[in-house]
């Protein structure tokens, strides 16, 4: 039975809106992960930062009236839309600059293929050799995981990050991705095994 005021029977709760402090804490907690997510997708730090900045602004301007517990889901949707818009803009641009490129959708990847098979990583150039062994190994593993994530098909990467990094449940991830829960599970499984296999081939354990 519904308790409290009659308003609650209609799903109207007393003010539980995100406060400025809650919003600030939330953004501080998610901003670096959001940046990395965008970076894995667009592979350009400036664009990734732009996407995160726009998402933060949009969240504060248009969705601040949401209860605090809804912020993660809303923010994820905004980030994913930002990434999608970026690729849409690129596709439109490439349509005009290179008519032939329009024959194949930009970023379209075959989910059955394993891009990690052909991924060449020059970690020596990326990571300084002056680091202590443990720190260097850590940095190398992170570098490899990030390269693997970038090489994954977009949907697999998205599912993996939402489900495991953002700790969303399957239903929430499916809502953000706009697909079925079964698809989320499949994408997550493929992504996890692909990354693990890639690390193993490079001689690293996750």
């Amino acid at each position: 039975m519904c308790g409290g005021s009659p308003w609650e029977w209609f799903g109207i709760r007393q003010a539980q809106l995100a406060t400025r402090k809650e919003l600030s804490d939330f953004l501080a907690e998610v901003e670096r992960r959001a940046y990395k997510q965008a970076l894995y997708a667009v592979r350009d730090s400036h664009t990734a930062l732009d996407i995160v900045q726009d998402a933060m602004l949009k969240l504060a301007e248009k969705y601040a009236a949401r209860p605090a517990h809804e912020l993660p889901l809303v923010f994820q949707r905004i980030i994913q839309n930002g990434i999608r818009d970026h690729f849409r803009r690129l596709r439109v641009r490439s349509f005009w600059t290179s008519p032939l490129s329009a024959l194949k959708p930009f970023g379209a990847q075959d989910d059955d293929s394993d891009p990690l098979e052909n991924l060449q990583v020059d970690l020596g150039a990326k990571i300084g050799t002056e680091l202590p062994t443990a720190a260097m190994e850590q940095a190398q593993t992170v570098g490899l995981i990030e390269k693997a994530l970038e090489a994954l098909p977009a949907r697999q990467r998205q599912a993996f990050l939402l489900r495991y990094w953002e700790e969303m449940d399957v239903a929430e991830a499916a809502a953000v991705m706009g697909c079925s829960e079964g698809s989320v599970k499949t994408h997550c499984s493929r992504a996890t095994h692909a990354i693990a296999a890639f690390l193993k081939r490079k001689g690293f354990e996750p």
């Binding site: 600030s24 953004l27 930062l49 900045q53 504060a60």
Partner: peptide, 9 residues
């Protein structure tokens, strides 16, 4: 970016 967003809160 976070500070700018909070200004628009």
């Amino acid at each position: 970016a976070r500070a700018a967003a909070l200004d628009h809160f």
